[in-house]
Design a protein around this nucleic acid. Structure first.
Lengths: 91, 91
DNA sequence: TAGATATTTAGATAATAGTCTAAATATCTA
DNA sequence: TAGATATTTAGACTATTATCTAAATATCTA
């Protein structure tokens, strides 16, 4: 996991909203685009960053590309935060 | 807690390193500046963002300003991540 | 295979962010 | 109170990023 990619990906509100939208289940790029008031091109850009950070997975189903959450990276982020804020004397 | 401020603050590697540096205990701006190869002005800028996000606390001791970790916000961030990656059916 | 649909990629633009130097503010001490 | 020390603030510059339109790619279906 590349920390920098993950934290940069999480730094944008639209991308966090995309993750939230995917909690209901996996969705195609087109389905997601209906929920956001940005162009499909911009959404695709955000999805590419989320994918690059491994926060989401992608699989093709015919003409569509289906995106879904990758929860395991969230666990890694939490571990990093836990470490980041753990006072050295504590451990 | 303002999510946007916290995630933006965590998106920069230097700022995450500042948090790491503070795990050993609270430090003054000057002490911190010895550990980073940027100007005091730039460091001050980063500290202001961390403070604004409430990831660190600050108190004056004479001429010095002492910075320390604010672990409670880390816990909040973890809760948000937990929520962000929790599939709706699960809850 | 042509045309339609789904999505991404390319290139441009405007806003945001990180860094620097120089100047300002706050506190201490002789 | 004057000068020294510690830190921040102001203003400028460059790099990065979010967004858009237009064009390209991939897949399906008649």
């Amino acid at each position: 996991m590349k920390q920098q990619l993950v934290f940069k990906a999480l730094a944008d509100g639209t991308r966090r909203n995309i993750l939230r939208a995917l909690r209901a289940g996996s969705k195609s790029a087109g389905e997601l685009s209906e929920e956001f008031s940005i162009t499909k091109a911009s959404l695709s850009h955000h999805l590419a960053l989320l994918l690059n950070a491994e926060l989401v997975r992608r699989e093709r189903r015919g003409q569509q590309l289906i995106y879904s959450l990758n929860s395991s990276v969230a666990e890694e982020v939490m571990a990093i935060l836990f470490d980041l804020f753990s006072h050295k004397e504590d451990s």
